[in-house]
Design a protein around this nucleic acid. Structure first.
Length: 292
DNA sequence: AAGGCTGCCTGCTTGC
DNA sequence: TGCAAGCAGGCAGCCT
């Protein structure tokens, strides 16, 4: 499932192909992929045709390509199974929902196939609005999304303060994209395993030091996953060249139920939580409630 | 404020 | 064997 590292791999692959390019054709093959576009497919097509594209940006799991007027952007969310494939104009991909062809200064005519098996992802044209913290502009659909831990303007101290002030539990908080963005089910479980924190640990009972350790583990697992090209299960996630990432081989907790914890050998347990699986080591990761 | 729940989706796996 | 249910889960929106 695409989370921050996977979306960043896509952004990095997309940048050289489309930065400075001009849109030559747009085909909407499945209008359901425009669920988040405010207007009909014709509007999406008309507003993109002939337009110049700037360098792609990302916040959390949201990716966007600013249009040359700098007033609006093509916003891409991969959802559960979205792929952005950069192809030569003769290449077809199964389950392509939207296809763009752009004239690239570096690569000539390039075909962009937006493929999405389950159609939880989307493309949309969206106007820029000021970011919530006053620094820069983001598409309006992204305005409520917090900065991610790889963002230079991510405010560690504010995050620690907000997290500890909430009446909630830690995994719920990690998945809350308005608190910190980019973390999904896989990297939440991995970061919690690395930090030895149970998913249902109340945030108010975590010390500031522990929260900072957890944040460091989130960054570490993101960095490691980025180096490996992201996490791929079968072909659910691919980079812009259609290749799998290798981080699935490095997972310590997610999907490892029944296998020994790499730290202590206790079998990893999987429990239902928030309508998803939570994977953890019952020995290394225990709920700790402070005595009062 | 917090959190439970639904709808949006397809394809693979499991169970009868 | 064949079909149906279960499962995977990010996000918006609704409700309590």
């Amino acid at each position: 499932m695409p989370e921050l590292p996977e979306v960043e791999v896509v952004r990095l692959g997309l940048a050289p192909a489309i930065t400075g390019a001009t849109v030559r054709s747009v085909e909407v093959l499945d209008e359901r992929s425009l669920r988040r576009h405010d207007g009909p497919a014709e509007d999406f097509v008309d507003r993109l045709l002939g337009v110049g594209l700037l360098a792609p940006e990302r916040r959390g799991k949201f990716l966007w390509v600013p249009l040359a007027d700098a007033q609006s952007a093509l916003v891409v969310h991969l959802g559960m199974s979205g792929q952005v494939l950069v192809r030569t104009p003769d290449i077809e991909d199964a389950r392509t929902r939207i296809r763009l062809e752009v004239d690239s200064p570096q690569h000539g005519l390039v075909r962009i196939n937006f493929v999405d098996q389950r159609i939880f992802g989307s493309m949309a044209l969206d106007a820029f609005v000021p970011a919530a913290d006053g620094h820069g502009l983001v598409p309006s659909q992204v305005a409520h999304i917090a900065r991610d831990p790889l963002d230079p303007l991510f405010d560690d101290a504010a995050f620690v303060r907000r997290l500890r002030g909430k009446a909630t539990t830690i995994k719920r908080a990690l998945l809350d994209q308005t608190l910190v963005s980019g973390i999904g089910n896989i990297y939440a479980d991995e970061a919690l395993w690395r930090a030895r924190i149970h998913y249902d640990q109340p945030t108010a009972a975590l010390s500031a030091v522990r929260v900072r350790q957890l944040l460091a583990e989130v960054r570490a697992v993101f960095a490691h996953a980025l180096e490996e090209g992201g996490t791929s299960f079968d072909t659910q996630y691919l980079n812009v060249n259609g290749q799998s990432g290798y981080f699935a081989h490095s997972l310590k907790a997610y999907g490892q139920q029944g296998s020994p914890c790499p730290r202590c050998g206790t079998p990893i347990v999987r429990e239902q939580f928030m309508n998803r699986g939570s994977h953890f080591c019952p020995r290394c990761q225990r709920v700790r409630v402070p005595r009062d």
